[in-house]
Design a protein around this nucleic acid. Structure first.
Lengths: 144, 144
DNA sequence: AGTTCAAGTTGTACTATACAACTACAACCG
DNA sequence: CGGTTGTAGTTGTATAGTACAACTTGAACT
């Protein structure tokens, strides 16, 4: 096996390990915000509000799933819905202040975990690793 | 923000994207084998058989969860249980031939997906990326 | 023998998810 | 206009994966 093939093997294996661990630990680390909820809130913050349908499309989730997640987030007071005056079918979702706070807090704690894990890496390696990951994820969606 | 801090941000973000995508696509890509089942079968192959309790410990799953997964895999004919003659509480799990075949097939198809995604990467980058991932995952478990 | 420990199963509950059927509104077309 | 078709979102139903607790069975060690 060539060095390239064996590197691909390793990348596959390590990415799988990571995915499994992330799934296992996500719920336990931030009981207040599941990985999906966190991602949705993050998207809302980044975009400054969007529609449930956009979330579903972007994250390849069924609209019913998003609908229930959104309902839960609203119940928890983390987002609010504003009827689009242009189109009354549409509800534009926005973070509430509480939502912004929780998102910031979870982001901080996640960032701390990553930072700790990456402590001791030379800056050059961090930058290259980050670039590789971006390049990997920028590829066509669909493969793991 | 320093280059190192911003790289950590990027790593966190991209790893999260990856974990989300993996979860979303795993079920659709290999309906015959969930990510967990695949991982369990892989572990059995690697170890040449082990106990349900070992699986639970290694993957931080509840023993009841493993028990049901194992039951399903046995029902599907992919693994078999052998009573440990030394200790009749213990069932040593082994891949059946069908299990080995399916595992090999899913591994091939996953590998193909990764290979396609990484096509065009210079060998040097593949090797470095693989090394970074190994180093990342080798850190203390628990952080995402 | 009796107690304590370990492996595994089963009952129950919860979360995330998908698919399908439905409602409400919009847009378009004749 | 007014009917048809399309889009946003909700709700009913089903399934998978998971955890926790209670239980069964066998082992080990006094």
């Amino acid at each position: 096996m060539s060095a390239a093939e064996s590197a691909v093997e390793t990348i596959q294996r390590e990415m799988t390990i990571f995915a499994r661990r992330a799934r296992a630990s996500a719920g336990r680390m931030h009981p207040e915000l599941s990985l999906v909820s966190y991602t949705l809130l993050g998207h809302l913050e980044e975009r400054g509000g969007c529609r449930a349908t956009d979330l579903a499309a972007h994250y390849a989730l069924d609209k019913s799933t998003v609908s229930r997640q959104v309902a839960a987030l609203e119940r928890a007071g983390l987002i609010e819905r504003r009827l689009d005056p242009e189109d009354h079918r549409v509800q534009v979702l926005h973070l509430t202040e509480a939502g912004q706070e929780i998102l910031a807090q979870v982001t901080r704690s996640r960032r701390a975990a990553f930072r700790e894990r990456l402590a001791g890496w030379p800056e050059e390696d961090l930058v290259r690793f980050a670039a590789y990951l971006e390049r990997y994820n920028a590829g066509p969606a669909g493969a793991d």
